[in-house]
């Protein structure tokens, strides 16, 4: 460690030192990056897929929403366009398994 300089003064001995404004640098960096982030946000926006709520689900499929409690998990005709291709296999397996298991579950009369 001694050869590396026990202190900064020893480590920098013989190295040319120049004036440096650290606070100005960080302030300018924050302003610059902020402007860049704002511009990108304005131009590109962000990938915003709407959230799934009970309200949107009920509007799209009122009978399903009000008929069976376990039904959504089994017959998922929800707006699942992004979900559908990747999880179709899993869902079909889930459906067959859960359907057989849920035959004993009675619909909730409303």
């Amino acid at each position: 460690m001694r050869s590396m300089g026990a202190t900064q003064e020893e480590y920098y001995r013989g190295v040319r030192m120049v004036p440096y404004d650290l606070v100005k640098e960080i302030v300018l960096a924050i302003v610059g990056v902020g402007v860049l982030a704002l511009l990108i946000s304005v131009v590109l926006s962000s990938p915003d897929v709407p959230q799934v709520t009970i309200a949107t689900w009920a509007q799209q499929n009122p009978p399903q929403t009000s008929s069976l409690a376990p039904q959504p998990a089994l017959h998922t005709d929800l707006p699942t366009t992004r979900w559908e291709p990747a999880r179709a296999g899993v869902r079909s397996r889930l459906r067959s398994g859960l359907e057989s298991a849920s035959r004993s579950i009675r619909p909730t009369p409303l």
Partner: peptide
């Protein structure tokens, strides 16, 4: 909070550290 740094810190490659912190602030 140093007001003097070695001359080589003036290179642009050292800017990436401070702008990373600036992005973290945002």
């Amino acid at each position: 909070l140093p007001d003097r740094q070695p001359y080589y810190v003036g290179s642009w490659v050292y800017v990436f550290g401070v702008i990373t912190i600036a992005a973290l602030a945002w």
